[in-house]
């Protein structure tokens, strides 16, 4: 480190780049995706969830979008875990400052969110049976009926599932909102204590909105009355799961 060259060493470049990419990947694309996703979910309560689902499934190059997302999440999570488990020593019990609790929570929620996202995708996307429900991939009935809203509601109308989704999604929301706050410090956007406080309030606001989206989506799921037709179609879908898996 004592060399007086005006260029950083390659170790420095690599280390710094990784740290900053870790920070950036939390916002783009992972954070942005989280916002869209939670907004979509919120349509369970207020709008046309089916339309949103159809829109997503109609996206071109969906596979590559998903792949990019997975790579980003994987990168962000792998580095995050590495940083968290390599030689740091949380001490919120001894020094119980609010910011210190958030420091610990940021790491805990990151891990919860990672586990949650994995299970959530396994359930909804990879169609692994959970809470007694096997989620269909296209969420359409055998006869082409729109079932996205119904099937989602059906899988969430379960207290265990609700708690799981509440904890998982709210962890992700906290992790994102607080991460946005620390990111502004890391990149040097907010310097003064005042700027950090003001930006903190905005991050808190965003976090609350996203949390409300999440809670709204769950309320929407519980309030959704599944019609007999939907149930029958769903049952049929479940019966034909074996064939579905072939897709």
């Amino acid at each position: 480190m004592t060399q007086s060259s005006s260029s950083p060493s390659s170790a420095a470049r690599f280390h710094f780049l990784l740290r900053r990419l870790h920070s950036l990947s939390g916002l783009v694309p992972v954070g942005v995706f989280l916002c869209f996703h939670l907004f979509t979910n919120f349509q369970m309560l207020t709008g046309d969830f089916q339309h949103e689902v159809d829109f997503i499934h109609a996206m071109p190059a969906l596979f590559y979008v998903e792949l990019a997302l997975w790579l980003s999440i994987g990168f962000h999570a792998a580095l995050g875990c590495y940083y968290t488990f390599s030689g740091v020593k949380p001490n919120a019990a001894a020094y119980n400052y609010e910011s210190n609790y958030r420091y610990v929570l940021q790491r805990v929620t990151g891990i919860i969110a990672l586990v949650f996202i994995f299970i959530h995708v396994a359930h909804f996307r990879w169609r692994i049976e959970m809470f007694g429900v096997l989620m269909p991939f296209y969420a359409k009935g055998p006869g082409g009926e729109d079932l996205a809203t119904a099937t989602t509601a059906m899988s969430l109308q379960h207290i265990g599932a609700t708690i799981f989704y509440l904890v998982g999604a709210l962890s992700a929301v906290f992790h994102f909102a607080n991460g946005l706050w620390t990111m502004a410090i890391t990149w040097g956007v907010t310097i003064t204590v005042g700027a950090q406080r003001r930006w903190g309030k905005m991050c808190l606001g965003l976090g609350v909105v996203l949390a409300l989206f999440t809670i709204g989506a769950l309320i929407g799921a519980w309030r959704y009355e599944i019609t007999d037709t939907e149930r029958a179609a769903f049952e049929a879908l479940q019966q034909g799961a074996e064939t579905m898996k072939g897709h």
């Binding site: 060493s9 020094y95 910011s99």
Partner: peptide, 28 residues
């Protein structure tokens, strides 16, 4: 005049980017 050298050192492992923003430092 030596800002670049200091910032290079700050980019090294153990430098600025290893801060976790717990912000305990300023309180004590």
């Amino acid at each position: 005049n030596n800002a670049a050298e200091r910032l290079n050192a700050m980019m090294e492992p153990g430098g600025i980017s290893d801060c976790g923003n717990a912000q305990n430092c300023v309180k004590v």
